[in-house]
Amino acid sequence: MDKVIVAKDVSLSYKADETIINQANFSINSGSFVFITGASGSGKSTLLKSLFGAIKLKQGSLVVGGVELGNVSRSKLNFLRRHIGIVFQDYKLIKEWTIEKNIMMPLIINGYEKSVTLNQVESLLKHVRLKHQAGKYPLELSGGEQQRVAMARALSHNPILILADEPTGNLDEYSSELIWNLLEGANTQLGTTVIVVTHHIPASLSIDYKHFHIEYGSINEIS
């Protein structure tokens, strides 16, 4: 099976005199569903950020989707990010754009045709049950609805990899279930690799998954 992520001796830090992740070695197969857990401040989000090149490596080699992130150029990083869907805990929606335009954004960046873009957005809005809110702005929606928009945006361009940072952290039960269903669907139906950083693995999940736990800077796989 193809490896979508290969990490060798990866160390991560924000300051020179501290290390958050220390010489981590792991790999993730294409099409797998992965959970990363750990206590607050253990480095879960830092590790996730390193996977889309938002944090530079202190040491080691990290290959994501065939791109070595060690000394990656801006154009290569952009290329990689165009094939990744990211979901943040704080949604990161563009406030001055409508819901429809927010979902459309990765498709525009990837240069999709307008007709394809419109069809895809319409279908995704149906999936996240927000078709009636298409013309609204993010701040007019509830937190759960905003996260569903962020989810639709992450799925819009059929990425090879979805990275989700505590996607259901602050959500109600209905929105949480919808988000997990969408992530599960992307993994099982489209074969997308999904990596989720979370405090709690939902009990209702019906798929096989891999579980990494971070403790004291080291990453351990839990079987």
Binding site: S75, N78, R81, L93, I94, K95, I109, N110
Partner: peptide, 16 residues
């Protein structure tokens, strides 16, 4: 800044 950062996270080139 916020809009440009979010677009950057999805791989938008500088001109876009």
């Amino acid at each position: 800044n916020e809009r440009m950062s979010i677009m950057g996270l999805f791989g938008a080139p500088t001109w876009l």
